[in-house]
């Protein structure tokens, strides 16, 4: 089966869910596995602009769709504003949940660029962090939101 991952066409088997196709077949191990049933968000990728839990997404369901993983988020050497904010605020501890946190935040800010703080927290509450980086995740996502908005307004 053919998948479109980070702009490239890739062949995978269709026996499993997306997370294993990405990690074990394509070697894109930046997408993590946490719970396997769509509860923790560690495996979040973006499919056609939507945050998707790749651990419960059959490979068949995303054939022909555009899949974006953490490896495809930076443009050239330039990090996405959400990635940059996660460094600026020194967010990650162990880092295992961070690909999912970042992909969830990217999708949220694409869909709802002016999300209120409450909406941000509600959306991000489905991404668990065992190290407890929550204070900084909140600060970083809100900071990325400000910068993305400022850039858009600068371009307008």
């Amino acid at each position: 089966m053919e998948l479109l991952v980070n702009g490239q066409r890739r062949q995978v088997s269709d026996e499993s869910v997306l997370v294993w196709a990405l990690r074990d077949e394509l070697g894109l191990t930046g997408t993590k596995i946490g719970c396997g049933i769509g509860l923790c968000g560690a495996c979040t990728v973006i499919v056609d602009g939507q945050a998707v839990r790749s651990c419960i997404t059959p490979v068949r369901a995303v054939s022909g769709k555009s899949i974006l993983t953490i490896e495809g988020l930076a443009k050239g050497g330039t990090l996405h504003p959400v990635q940059q904010a996660f460094i600026d605020y020194q967010v990650p501890q162990c880092g295992w949940c961070m690909s999912g946190q970042i992909m969830s935040a990217v999708a949220l800010l694409e869909q709802n660029p002016r999300a209120s703080e409450r909406e941000v927290l509600a959306a991000m509450s489905r991404n668990l962090c065992r190290c407890g980086c929550y204070v900084r995740i909140r600060a970083a996502v809100l900071d990325a939101q400000r910068k993305i908005l400022a850039r858009k307004e600068g371009n307008a």
């Binding site: 074990d24 894109l28 191990t29 953490i70 967010v91 990650p92 880092g95």
Partner: peptide
């Protein structure tokens, strides 16, 4: 001093135990 491992951790490049891949590896 900023953490030395964070760039790899926000780009998916950091390798954890679950991420190890070896030639001919089985599961």
């Amino acid at each position: 001093v900023p953490r030395l491992d964070l760039r790899d951790k926000v780009t998916g490049a950091a390798v954890y135990g679950y991420d190890v891949r070896l030639p001919g590896m089985l599961y």
